[in-house]
Design a protein around this nucleic acid. Structure first.
Lengths: 271, 271
DNA sequence: AGATATTTGTTCGTATGTATT
DNA sequence: TAATACATACGAACAAATATC
């Protein structure tokens, strides 16, 4: 069991009295689990909740807003409207997590330290489940970057597609938390401004070698060889990490030799 | 001063008009980044925000509630009170993430698939940074479970302490996202009801072997041998995973041979 | 410790917006 | 188009918390 839920407002004297809004949030959460409500099910209407909790409209609305931000419900107007149970989207979960990591100043190295062990795992766990449609999607993505980019924009699109390749692989994993983590790391790489600077550099990753690895991966998955898939990605990640780190070093160096005051803030930001 | 909101709501016909509350949430977020506000800094008071946005009190309060749930601000009453910039706590980030994974039905195997590659990494990254105080904390934790438990409660406490051991190791990692992920996986293990059932079984993990690994880890960290630390944890995790999976299998088997309708819901729940 | 001032927290009546029929 | 059912928004009055003197 975790901690703060259910049990009645602790009469602990010193503690500041529980705020009405938070009480209602918890009460609604309990209502959800007790009634076994699932996605699509509707909560009582605003005015019924007001009656049920003997609370003011504003208070109930704040509680519903809190639940909405947590991705637990969504609210619709109109007849038949009201608060409906939702399952949180992956995108919202990632945004919320980004808020947490915002202050933590992540580096490329931090992210690749995880990627290099997780991507091989996720590829192995996807291997038994990916179907021909998935493999075709992967091949289509490779075609986005199997040639020299015409300009900086295309180069950037190619880098994003390269990350999407791994995102599609993760989609077929049967391990939800592993897949989520890998996809989150990919999003982080898209968002980190340092990474963005790197992506407009020429050749962030050796093209032929990267594509070769990815084609080998597709072949390995096609013959359901999870072990090979994992090994290929281990090599691929080591290579990618190497490229990113040397590029980051070069980039840093370039900044250090520039004018003392770079125009825009260099603070790394996420989301 | 300048302008930036003013631009009228995108005349996109089909799109449902932007809700006032969400506009204010975004406006405040922009205010935070534009003014470069950091933890501890104060936002304008409620009544000033009401004036500034020409909005109703309830609307502004809903917006502040949304920001509060996202962990971006906290609000205090009294003189000098108001909304203050916060950095999201690790605990809140974990709760939010749990909400996302709630519906995903994680298994012990899913979690250990990640733990077995991440715990070695996090130990290696902590090795250069852990100090004598940290090593002493680890030794103190081991003492909680270096002996046979007297009853089921103590057995459960011992299992929790065993997870805390790895949590402390992660604290000393210099990789924020890796450390967070490991600690989150540990929390998941504490919360999964299936795991809870396992923990009250005798000997969820071979005691002597586990403690031996952990003592070896402390020794390796003390001599700053990151490679050894990583190798020890690889072995430790493989062993722990094995124990957990066989215990889970036994547990499942026991349920299958019980009455058809077990008393309480077996739905795995998180948080 | 008590009084007071400041600021958020809660309630309610009313009006407006939006989707369904 | 109109009627209906629902959320969304506003604002005024009052309650509760907390810092300061």
């Amino acid at each position: 069991m975790s901690e703060p839920d259910s049990i009645t407002p602790p009469p602990t004297a010193g503690a500041p009295r529980r705020k009405r809004t938070d009480e209602i949030v918890d009460a609604i959460k309990r209502m959800i689990v007790e009634h076994g409500l699932g996605p699509g099910d509707r909560l009582p209407q605003e005015r019924d909740l007001i009656a049920q909790f003997a609370a003011g409209k504003g208070t109930v609305r704040e509680a519903l807003k809190a639940l909405e931000v947590q991705g637990l419900i969504s609210v619709r107007t109109g007849p038949g409207g009201g608060a409906f149970i939702e399952r949180m989207s992956e995108g919202r979960a990632m945004s919320l997590l980004s808020n947490f990591l915002f202050a933590k100043n992540l580096s490329i190295a931090n992210i690749y330290e995880m990627r290099k062990v997780l991507e091989p795992q996720v590829a192995a766990s996807a291997t038994p489940h990916i179907d021909e449609a998935g493999l075709n999607r992967l091949e289509a993505i490779i075609r986005i970057y199997d040639h020299e980019p015409a300009d900086a924009t295309e180069r950037w699109n190619q880098r994003m597609a390269e990350l999407d390749f791994h995102g599609v692989v993760a989609e077929y994993s049967d391990n939800p938390i592993l897949a989520f983590t890998c996809r989150f790391l990919q999003r982080l790489l898209k968002d980190l401004t340092i990474a963005q600077d790197i992506y407009v550099q020429p050749e962030p990753v050796s093209r032929e070698s990267g594509i070769r690895h990815q084609r080998e991966l597709i072949a390995a998955m096609r013959r359901r060889d999870a072990k090979a898939a994992s090994a290929i990605l281990t090599e691929h990640m080591a290579e990618a990490e190497q490229h990113m780190l040397t590029l980051q070093a070069k980039l840093m160096d370039r900044f250090l030799t520039e004018d003392a005051a770079p125009a825009r803030s260099r603070k790394r930001r996420i989301a």
